[in-house]
Nucleic acid binder design. Structure first.
Lengths: 229, 229
DNA sequence: AAAAAACTATGATCTATATCACATTTATAG
DNA sequence: CTATAAATGTGATATAGATCATAGTTTTTT
C-alpha cells in the first residue's frame, strides 16, 4: 500500500455527488481530514473485525466487499468507483463488519469518520446525497440477493460476466479480475463448478478465453441465460 | 386498511430515534404531513412497482418486505417496529422496488417523502439518525444473506424460529405469523421442505406445535443447529 | 532457474433439497 | 352449516451442484 497522503478535495476530479454539494469551508474541513492511498491487487483496504475511524472513498480501481460466513468467506459485492465504502462503521461500535480488498490497483481516500459525521450534521444536502447513495446500494444488493438465490449457476455466472463487461470494464473483452475460486465466492458456487460452467460457456461459443482475458462473444445468449436463470 | 388519519407526533410514544431529535417547529412540519393507518394481517402496505410519495414508519405489528424474483416472490426481511420502511423511494424514480405486507395487525404512519427530505436537509441530527438506521439494516441484511447462502435448511429454519422468538415475540412460545409457504419464501426453501423440517424438529423434541402455536423447547439445540448450519 | 505455491481442469460419486403426486386438515365464504 | 378454497403432511423420484480425487498449468518465491 502506497501512501501519497495529502490530497486536495477542491481540485479532485473524481468527487462524489455528496462532496459536490459542500461549500468552501466544508471542503477545507474535508481536505484536512482526508488521506489518499493506493492499493495493489489483493491488498486489503480494511479488515472485518478491526476498529476503524475512517470511511473509505474508492476513486479508481475495483474492490471486493467480503465477509466471513459460517462455512466460508463470501463476496457480498464488487464495488466500482466512485463509491463510499464502510459507511456502516459510523455506527456505535466502529468495528468493520466486513472486509474490503482491492482486485486491481485502486486509489482510495480515507475520510476521518468524525469529519464525515460533522459534514452530515452540517450540510443537509450532503446527508441527502449520502442517503441516496446508501439506498441505491441497498436496492442493488436486494436485486443481487434475489438473483443469487433463485438462479442456478449458469444464470449467476452470466450475471457476473455481464456485470463485469457492462458496469466495470465497459467492454466485452476484459481481464477477469477474479480467480475461479473468488468468482465462486462471488456467485456462490465452488471453484470446480465455476471452472465447469466457464468451460461450458466456452464450448458453447458464448465466451472466448485466452489466459485471463475473456471475451463475451454471445452476449445475447448470455443475457438469455441470465434471464432464464 | 383502517385510516385513523390525523396523528400527533408530539405526543406519540413510539417515536423513532430520528424523530426524537426534531425541534418543535420540525415536529409541526412532520405532524401536518403524516397520516396514520392500520393494516390487518395479509394487507399490503405498499406494492412493488407502484409510485409512492410516502415513507412508511411501522409503529406496531410485523411486516414482511418481499420482492418478485426471476422465479418467485421472496421475503427479503421481516421488519419489527419501530422502523422506517421504503426509504429507498426517496430516490429519483419514486417507485417502490419491493412490497411490504402486514403479517399481523400493524399500525403505520405515512410520511410525505418531500417532508422527510426536508427534515433530512434541515436537521443534521435527523439525517444522521436516518443514516444509522439504514446502515444497521444493511449490516443485518448482509448477515442474513450469508446465513441464507451458507446454511442448509435446518440451520436456516432454526435461525428463523430463534429470530421470531428472540427479536419479535420476546417469548419462546408464539403463534407462527407465516404460513409454511411464506416461511419457505423467507428461508428460501419449498413449502414441502419447510413442513418436513418442522416435523423433524418436532420429532426431535426441539419444538412443540399446537395449531399455529409453536414453542421452542430445545433452544440450546436449535442454537447449535443454527451455528452448525 | 529451480522449487514451491497457487490456480485451473476434469472425471466419478454423493447428497440435500426440489419436484411431482396425492391425501388430509383447516380456514373462509356463501 | 355446507361448500370451496387454502394450507399442511408425507411418500417417491429427480437433479443441480457439492465433494473427493488426481493431474496439469501458471505464477511466485528463493
Amino acid at each position: 500500500m502506497d501512501l501519497p497522503g495529502q490530497v486536495n478535495c477542491e481540485t479532485c476530479t473524481i468527487r462524489s455527488c455528496a462532496v459536490e454539494v459542500l461549500d468552501q469551508q466544508e471542503l477545507d474541513i474535508l481536505k484536512t481530514n482526508c488521506a489518499g492511498a493506493v492499493f495493489d491487487r489483493n491488498e486489503r483496504i480494511f479488515q472485518q473485525g478491526s476498529l476503524s475511524s475512517n470511511i473509505a472513498y474508492v476513486k479508481t480501481g475495483l474492490v471486493k466487499i467480503h465477509k466471513n460466513g459460517p462455512s466460508k468467506d463470501q463476496i457480498l459485492k464488487l464495488v466500482k468507483p466512485p463509491r463510499f465504502i464502510g459507511i456502516p462503521t459510523v455506527l456505535g461500535d466502529k468495528v468493520n463488519h466486513y472486509s474490503a480488498t482491492a482486485l486491481m490497483p485502486t486509489t482510495v481516500c480515507f475520510i476521518v469518520t468524525s469529519t464525515f459525521k460533522t459534514l452530515i450534521m452540517r450540510n443537509g444536502k450532503f446527508a441527502n446525497e449520502v442517503i441516496n447513495s446508501i439506498c441505491q446500494d441497498e436496492l442493488t444488493f436486494y436485486d443481487r440477493s434475489i438473483n443469487q438465490m433463485q438462479k442456478q449457476i449458469h444464470g449467476r455466472l452470466a450475471d457476473a460476466l455481464l456485470f463485469l463487461a457492462d458496469e466495470i470494464f465497459f467492454s466485452d473483452t476484459f481481464d477477469l479480475p477474479l480467480s475461479h475460486s473468488d468468482l465462486g465466492d462471488y456467485i456462490h458456487a465452488t471453484r470446480e463448478s465455476v471452472t465447469r460452467a466457464l468451460s461450458r460457456f466456452k464450448a458453447d461459443g458464448l465466451i472466448q478465453v485466452k489466459g485471463h482475458r475473456i471475451s463475451l462473444i454471445g452476449k445475447d445468449m448470455l443475457l438469455k441465460i441470465s434471464k432464464l436463470g
